[in-house]
Every structure is written in C-alpha cells, then in structure tokens.
Simulated scan of single mutants.
Amino acid sequence: MTQHPTPDERRPANDGPKAAARNRAALIAAAREVYAEQGLDAPLSGIARRAGVGQGVLYRHFPDRAAVADAVLEENVREVEQAGAAPGATLAGVLGVLTWHLTESAAFIGLLHPDRTGGRPDDVHAHASALSERVERSLRVHLGDGHRLGASDDLMLAIAMVSGAVTGPTREERERRALAAWRLLGVEVGPVRPFGG
C-alpha cells in the first residue's frame, strides 16, 4: 500500500537564489575540507556528499573539477584580502589567516607556486599568478620600512618556503609545521584562523 505524504510532510518550498547561494558556499567549504584530506584528485561526489547536496547541484555551480578548485582558491584569496583590508589589520594577523588557508586547503599551496606550471595551460598559469599577486598585495601593505621580508621577492619566497613545510596527516600537524617554519624565518604570525573566525 502506497502512502502519500500529508501536506505537513511535503518538502519545503524552493528558496531559489537563497538556496543556490547556500549550496555554493557549502560546496566550497566541503571542497576545501575534502581537498585537505584527499588532495585535488578527490572525487567530486565526495564533495557533494560532504556539502549535503546532490551531484547535480555541484555541476550546476561548477561544470568541472577545475572550476571547483578555482572557486576554493578564489574564496581563499578573497578572505586573505578581507583580512588585509580590515580595520586595525596587522601583518601578523593577515599571516595567521594565510597560514590557516595553507593548513586547510591543499589547493591553496599550488597557487602560491605559480612559477611551477607543471604542464598547466598558459591561461591557468596566468590566473594562478594573478591570484598570487593579490595575496602578495594584501600582505605587502602591512610590511613596515625595513621589514625582513621587504625586499622584492622575499615575501613570496618566505610564503613558498612555509607552504613547502605544510605537510602532515592532520590539520594540527600541518599548522604546527607552518608555525615552526615562520618562527625559523623570524616572522611573527597571529592566531591561525579563518578571517572573522
């Protein structure tokens, strides 16, 4: 015998654009987590599952794997920019946000090494370079005169060195190693947390 749902048991009305924005944000957050755990080759179905949406919803927002990674990278850069532009922002505080992204997002580390194209098409390399430059601008405005990372390439070289140290099976281990690398470089880092966290 088939039972039909009563009016109270039916699915809620479609929230339209609100639901779409929530789903997109959930997919980006899930992708960041899944990439941190499994790397950039993680199955897209796992990202959709972690976000609590169907795979069709993922493909409505992101047509392919590259688009998902690009959205995570863009969100990471946007948060570093917001941290850098916040009232009272300091280099240490912005580095804390950057370091959080390094420990949370495997995709972010490749961005900070745009000179290593690894066979990527020129447009992908150019986009990665542009994102990397945005990160550098967000940090450079907080470098005081005579700061040890003030020379032309020193800031991004230090970030590349720290990102190379961000290894380990857990986020805590990756954070510990990142902070140790900053300490060895003699650079103060604020609390390691997402912007606004």
Results as ranks from 00 to 15, higher is better:
His101Met: 01
Ala83Ser: 15
Pro17Ile: 05
Ala89His: 10
Glu33Ile: 02
His61Trp: 02
Ile47Tyr: 07
Ala69His: 01
Val72Pro: 04
Leu185Trp: 04
Glu37Val: 12
Glu75Ala: 15
Ala51Gly: 06
Glu175Tyr: 00
Ala85Asn: 14
Pro121Gln: 06
Asn14Gln: 09
Ala106Ser: 12
Ala20Val: 03
Ala106Asn: 11
Ser163Lys: 07
Val189Gln: 12
Glu33His: 10
Leu184Met: 12
Pro121Arg: 10
Glu173Pro: 00
Ser129Lys: 06
Asn23Leu: 00
Thr103Arg: 12
Asp8Arg: 04
Pro17Asn: 01
Val124Gly: 08
Leu155Gln: 07
Asp15Cys: 01
Gly118Asp: 14
Ala69Met: 01
Gly186Ile: 05
Leu184Cys: 06
Thr90Ser: 15
Pro5Phe: 09
His61Phe: 03
Gly88Phe: 03
Leu27Thr: 03
Gly93Trp: 07
Leu44Asn: 11
Ala69Trp: 00
His61Arg: 03
Pro169His: 05
Lys18Val: 13
Glu104Asn: 11
Trp100Lys: 07
Ala128Cys: 06
Pro43Tyr: 06
Tyr35Gly: 02
Pro63Tyr: 00
Leu155Phe: 07
Leu184His: 09
Ala13Pro: 08
Arg148Ala: 15
Ala106Asp: 13
His61Ile: 02
Glu9Cys: 03
Asn23Met: 01
Gly88Leu: 02
Leu131Gln: 15
Ala36Leu: 02
Val77Leu: 09
Ile109Val: 14
Asn14Phe: 11
Ala178Asp: 09
Thr6Met: 07
Ala178Phe: 05
Pro194Val: 09
Glu79Pro: 00
Asn23Cys: 02
Pro194Thr: 12
Ser152Val: 09
Asp15Gln: 15
Ala178Gly: 09
Gly84Gln: 04
Glu133His: 11
Pro12Ser: 15
Arg193His: 14
Trp182Ile: 11
Leu155Ile: 07
Phe62Gln: 07
Val187His: 10
Gly88Glu: 04
Pro7Asn: 11
Thr99Met: 05
Arg22Tyr: 05
Gly56His: 05
Val53Thr: 14
Ala126Gln: 14
Lys18His: 08
Met156Leu: 13
Leu179Phe: 02
Asp115Glu: 15
Val77Lys: 06
Gly150Val: 04
Ser152Lys: 12
Gly84Cys: 07
Gly16Pro: 03
Ala42Ile: 07
Val72Leu: 04
Thr90His: 05
Leu112Ile: 12
Arg134Gly: 09
Ala128Leu: 14
Ala67Met: 10
Gln3Tyr: 11
Arg49Leu: 13
Arg49Met: 09
Arg193Lys: 13
Gly54Asp: 14
Arg65Tyr: 01
Gly150Phe: 03
Pro191Thr: 14
